[in-house]
Design a protein around this nucleic acid. Structure first.
Lengths: 199, 199
DNA sequence: TATGGATTTCAGAAATTACTGAAATCCATG
DNA sequence: CATGGATTTCAGTAATTTCTGAAATCCATA
């Protein structure tokens, strides 16, 4: 049923699953759908991956929570069929959006919360500085992400392809950009060369 | 010993650990070191987090494998002391580098491998197209990452701060950029508006 | 090279996460 | 509104991951 290549691809996604914050089954189902031109229903997934029907149900639910998989209905068939978006950029955008939501946003919220309650405690010192710094850094990065995300795909691809040519463009924008970024007490230093390698 | 804020921060990092691909202890130790101005030795970590010595040892080993933590020796003390880099940009760079290495590079390798062996099998069709497309997309993104990573931090921050101003800059570079990106058989389409939302 | 503190290793225990089969629920159709 | 296929839920089991204490190793110093 599945070609050798498909098998290997699916197994790889299963193995990578844990590193990607999903589990083996979810990874495999995603891979299977990604490679399938036609939408698949749960029973087809059960057959092709040899896993239980209930596991497929739960895993599809998770993939839908990630918005990585779409429900598609086939005329004259009341079963649910699933696909991944054709356009890979849609997938990338979803992936980044979801990971930001799960892996970054909660921390930013927590950092701000800690900063709010700290002054009341009279808390101060290095730890608070670090927390503030980290919060600002995350805000800079997510703010930039928001900007990128607003671009339509064609523009985005142009930008990504630009690469080293960017160096020159920064020069063109000079003077317009009010460079400033740092914590309340201790400014985020921008080291001349770099902070060095490992110990 | 630990302030309220420090406690909460550490607990948060512990909880987020699993979403970040590390475990609770590793997350907590990292958080503790991140907030500590002075380097800490293993015994101090044991005390502050109430975990076993062996767990600290293994977790520090993992943090070192991630290059997120540095060994620092104190004169007249033969114990190992650990810190995180002062500069947050160094941390971000390490994090991105390591995640790319663990979460993306192996997949790119696998995709290329599948493409190499597929023609021999006479394999073709939708699945191969998808695999090729995905490989190209990943290469575009990692290539761009390499470019960004080469920039010194100050430039990088400028770029990130640029945000919406980028729109204009792309225009300036127009004509220089040979837009092309697509799979072998089936070009990666760049939809006019977007592939739409969820099902 | 013997000593002893510091660190690492490792086998088993504890905790967590993933998976299954059976039962419950859902819902379009007759 | 009863039927029956499709889907979901859930409690128990399996598998995996994390954590610990004890023993082994390492290594600077006496």
């Amino acid at each position: 049923m599945l070609s050798n290549t498909e098998q290997e691809f699916i197994i790889h996604f299963g193995e990578m699953g844990s590193k990607w914050g999903i589990n083996r089954t979810v990874g495999q189902i995603y891979a299977l759908l990604f490679l399938s031109e036609a939408p698949l229903n749960a029973e087809q997934i059960v057959e092709r991956l040899s896993i239980s029907r209930s596991n497929v149900s739960m895993s599809l639910k998770e993939l839908q929570a990630w918005e990585l998989v779409r429900l598609k209905h086939v005329q004259g068939d009341r079963r649910d069929y699933f696909t991944t978006p054709e356009d890979l950029w849609t997938i990338v955008r979803t992936l980044v959006e979801q990971r930001k939501k799960r892996e970054i946003d909660p921390t930013l919220t927590k950092l701000r919360e800690l900063q709010m309650q700290a002054p009341a405690d009279g808390e101060s010192g290095y730890a608070m500085d670090r927390i503030g710094e980290l919060g600002e850094l995350i805000e800079l990065l997510t703010g930039w992400y928001d900007d990128m995300n607003r671009l339509e795909t064609e523009r985005l691809v142009q930008l990504l392809t630009l690469g080293s040519k960017l160096q020159g463009l920064i020069g063109k924008a000079e003077g317009v950009i009010p460079f400033s970024f740092g914590g309340k007490r201790r400014a985020t230093q921008t080291p001349k060369k770099s902070d060095g390698g490992a110990a």
